[in-house]
C-alpha cells in the first residue's frame, strides 16, 4: 500500500515548488493556510503570499485585482466558504471578466469529518459548474493534484480546484498524464462503466474488482474535469458498455452525476445511476463512518452497477 497523502498536501507542496520558477505566482488565503496548506508556499515565498484574514469575499475579489495585473493567482479556503460565502464575487469578479484565478478549495465533501455539516461542502461543484467560463477539476490523488496545479498555474481561465482534507492512497498509475478536460479509462470493460472522481475513484476501482469476481466486466473512467466534461469519452464508453454509474463525494444534484446524465440523455441515452450524497446534509463523524453512512461505499457502487445492468 502506498503512502497516503491528502490532495491539499500535494497542493501546498506544489505551490511551494512553483514559487522558485513562477515569479508571477501569488497565493492568497483567508486564515486557513495551515489547513489548506498554502502555508507551504508562505514559508518559501512570504512576499507573494497574502493572508486576507477571515474575509473570503475580499479574498476572491482581491484575487481579481491581482489577476488584472497579470499575476497567476491561487486563492484558498475551505470549499464551503470559498464557494458558499463568496459565490457572487467568484461569478461577477472572476468568471465574468474571465480572469485567470484558481480557486483551490480544500475540505470539500463529507470527509471533512467531525466538524459536521456546516463545514462539509456537498454542493460546491454544482454551484461552480453552473457559472459560465468556469473550469471545474476534482483530482483523485496527490499526483493528479500536482499535475493539475502545475497546469492551472499557466491556465488562462478561471478555475475551481476541489481538494480534500483526508489522506488518500495513490490511485493513478505511475505514467498517468493529467490533462484539463480529459477523462482516462483506467480499466476497460463491456458490461457497465463507472465514471468517478476525487477520493471515490479508488472505491470505484475496488467495486469493479469485486464485480469481476462475479463475472461482471466493468469499465472505470477517471473524470477529474467535471467542466468542460469529456463528453466524447463519456459517450464512447456509454455505447461500449450500455449501462453507467457515476460516483462522487458530492450531492447527486449538480455534480459529476448530473454532468454525465446531461450528456448521456442528449447524446446516447442508457441506464444511469448516481452514487453520491442523496440531497441531504452531512453530520459529525469519522470520515470513513460518514462515507459508509451516506452510501459512498464499494458495496453500494457494486450494487448500483448491477441495478444499472438489469435496466438495460
Amino acid at each position: 500500500m502506498s503512502e497516503k497523502i491528502a490532495t491539499r498536501e500535494a497542493y501546498g507542496q506544489t505551490l511551494a515548488e512553483l514559487a522558485a520558477t513562477d515569479k508571477n505566482l501569488v497565493v492568497l488565503d483567508a486564515d486557513l493556510s495551515k489547513s489548506t496548506k498554502t502555508c507551504d508556499f508562505a514559508k518559501v515565498c512570504p512576499e507573494r503570499f497574502i493572508d486576507v484574514g477571515i474575509a473570503e469575499q475580499n479574498m476572491i475579489t482581491v484575487s481579481a485585482g491581482l489577476a488584472t495585473l497579470g499575476k497567476h493567482v491561487f486563492c484558498s479556503s475551505f470549499a464551503i466558504f470559498a464557494v458558499g460565502r463568496a459565490f457572487e464575487q467568484i461569478r461577477n469578479s472572476i468568471a465574468y471578466p474571465q480572469l485567470p484565478v484558481t480557486i483551490a478549495a480544500t475540505h470539500a465533501g463529507l470527509t471533512v469529518g467531525e466538524d459536521g455539516a456546516t463545514h462539509q461542502a456537498i454542493e460546491d461543484v454544482a454551484i461552480m459548474r453552473a457559472v459560465p467560463n468556469m473550469t471545474v477539476i476534482v483530482p483523485a490523488d496527490a499526483e493528479e493534484t500536482r499535475q493539475a496545479v502545475r497546469q492551472l498555474a499557466e491556465y488562462p481561465h478561471p478555475a475551481y480546484l476541489r481538494l480534500g482534507r483526508l489522506a488518500v492512497e495513490q490511485i493513478l498509475p505511475a505514467d498517468y498524464q493529467f490533462q484539463i478536460g480529459k477523462g482516462t479509462v483506467l480499466r476497460d470493460g463491456k458490461d457497465a462503466v463507472i465514471f468517478a472522481c476525487g477520493l471515490m475513484l479508488g472505491k470505484a476501482l475496488q467495486a469493479a474488482e469485486q464485480l469481476a469476481a462475479e463475472g461482471i466486466n466493468t469499465a472505470v473512467v477517471n473524470m477529474p474535469t467535471i467542466k468542460p466534461l469529456d463528453s466524447e469519452l463519456v459517450c464512447r464508453m456509454a455505447k461500449q458498455c450500455g449501462a453507467a454509474v457515476t460516483v462522487e463525494e458530492h450531492s447527486i444534484i449538480g455534480g459529476l452525476g448530473s454532468a454525465v446524465a446531461e450528456t448521456l440523455t442528449e447524446n446516447c441515452p442508457i441506464p444511469l445511476l448516481r452514487v453520491g450524497v442523496n440531497d441531504q446534509f452531512g453530520q459529525s463523524g469519522k470520515p470513513d463512518e460518514l462515507l459508509t453512512e451516506y452510501g459512498l461505499t464499494v458495496e453500494n457502487i457494486a450494487a448500483k452497477v448491477k441495478e444499472a445492468i438489469n435496466r438495460k
Binding site: V62, G65, T68, L69, S93
Partner: peptide, 24 residues
Amino acid sequence: DVSTGSLGQGVSVACGLAKGLKID
C-alpha cells in the same frame, strides 16, 4: 480595467491592484 456593477466588489479589486503593484 475592471468589471464592476455588484456593489462592494470594486474596492476589493482596487486593493488587489494596489497590493500587486506594491509586490512589484
